[in-house]
Design a protein around this nucleic acid. Sequence first.
DNA 1: CTGTTAGCGCTTTCAA
DNA 2: TTGAAAGCGCTAACAG
Lengths: 338, 338
Amino acid sequence: MKPVNLKRLAEELNLSIATVSRALQDSYEVSAATKERVRALATALHYEPNAYASSLRRNQSKTIGVVIPKVTNHFFALAINGIEEAARQRGYHVLIYLTHDDYAREVAIIQHLKGGRVDGILMSVASGTEDTAHIRSLRDANIPLVFFDRVRSEIATAQVTTNDYESSYQATEHLLAAGCRHIAHLLISNNLSIGRNRLQGYRDALHAHGLPPDPDLILAGTMNNEQNVGRLQDLMQHRPDIDGIFASVERLAVSAYHVCRQLGRRIPEDVKVVGFSNLESVSLFDPPLTTITQPAHDIGREAARILLQAVEKKRAISPSQSVVLNSELVQRRSTATA
Amino acid sequence: MKPVNLKRLAEELNLSIATVSRALQDSYEVSAATKERVRALATALHYEPNAYASSLRRNQSKTIGVVIPKVTNHFFALAINGIEEAARQRGYHVLIYLTHDDYAREVAIIQHLKGGRVDGILMSVASGTEDTAHIRSLRDANIPLVFFDRVRSEIATAQVTTNDYESSYQATEHLLAAGCRHIAHLLISNNLSIGRNRLQGYRDALHAHGLPPDPDLILAGTMNNEQNVGRLQDLMQHRPDIDGIFASVERLAVSAYHVCRQLGRRIPEDVKVVGFSNLESVSLFDPPLTTITQPAHDIGREAARILLQAVEKKRAISPSQSVVLNSELVQRRSTATA
DNA sequence: CTGTTAGCGCTTTCAA
DNA sequence: TTGAAAGCGCTAACAG
């Protein structure tokens, strides 16, 4: 079967390639009659323009790249959902790249994307990333970038985040109000913006309520979850006075539940737990987990919106376009034998 | 800043474009010395080949498309993980498209992909899909396709699935062994291969144990979860004899928990529940959910492997390359005050 | 070992 | 309103 491209259409219609191209783009300089003829044949032959030829010529790919640590995390899954929605609405495609929180991978991915495969990039940085030269180099390559959730403020671009500081402050106050006096904080990583903000909210809330800071109660997680569990066990055993846990990320909240059970510490009687999470089924946990839930879908949609607007208008993105959305503290009742 | 492309490199090195191109591809017909000079400048100028020019010329995009119903579902998230891994290893990129279980979207996406944007497609069909003409048309467009999980066997291509029938049979027997005699089945959709296979496993297990089929115990879900919950409430109220629930998908298992609680039916004393699920934290449910867990990551990796092999060898894919992986019945102990 | 040349499919001046 | 022609950046004959 002969390929169906502009040349083919032009031949069959006795028109020039240029006219066919213009007709399909609904150009004003083509007669209605010709447009009709062209369109008819195009649909009859199931013509689909070659995206690469078009991209090469126009120097734009109608594609955005999404660079995230992982997709097996409800937050990122929801964010992708929002991104895909915004992209589709404007006719853009979405390439996914997973860093698995590995710095080297992140560098390789970014370097590769500078080949013009994408018109813009949405990114949530890896926890292993310290140096950000690779990200800065995107500016030279003229590829717009918008950060979401895990940002690096030293890079001058827009970022879409949530009120991590405030919601962490609020979550800590929630535990304090429930009577907790020795609240542990499970930190995702020292490296990440979100980790630092959440930690600060926790610290300031304690301070505001006259509680002294206790560095021993702050546990920094790693990428290795078994290791986290081990350290958490140590902490809980050495500090039987712990009566509250604030987990800065879902994975650690889940680990906290497991460890408490192993050690026979009852939730919520002995230890109260609050954690960041986007998992709906936490209300089936025993007992239900109180969460700070981020508007993940909106974050993705908003980030994509900002990026695509800049791409289409060929305007640079400035930090002033950043957006902060609000997370929600969700307290779930146990429905067990309600 | 002048663009850095082959022409630019050639000029600066006083070589022809062709030689530079060959040098960068490590062609045997270029002297080691020249290769060195070329590579040095290329890295110095951060040269990155234009993916679209290359794709246009070679008529291959080094990109695969993944068409799935949704990403906010741990099964698909894990599958993407596996796909991305296999793709990256071979230097391929991954485009994501979400159908949201909508037939029209699926058709539009497939049509669009015929424009040559991808070298192959991995797909899990939408529950809203009845007619599959759009999928068949991929064959004419010469785009290889591999199904995973939600397949359509009338289309002659490879598919990667799990032993849904057997694991459903086993799950049903598990409930029977636990003493259940009136087991409800929550079906994901009449339309889907996985739904039919799981239903059949359930039916045959009941039959093998001498229990008569009871169509009233089979509840077909829809995309609207509130509606599902409503129907489930009705069912449970009209049939107080129900003492077991087998949910063919995670979402329905979670709903089953909620409904049982609303109605004051204790799990597992009054009603035992088993469900397909890839969520790790089900062990924190109250009580822990017994699950059939699919090897989602492997499914994705395997599907990508089959597809990419065909793409690279330019070989057609035949149904004989299909693979069936095994799910696992996971019974979790309650760790509460263990 | 290196250069010349044609062309992938499309868009877009410029000319008619 | 239509056509001819150049060229996006790259690869791959073919020639030397």
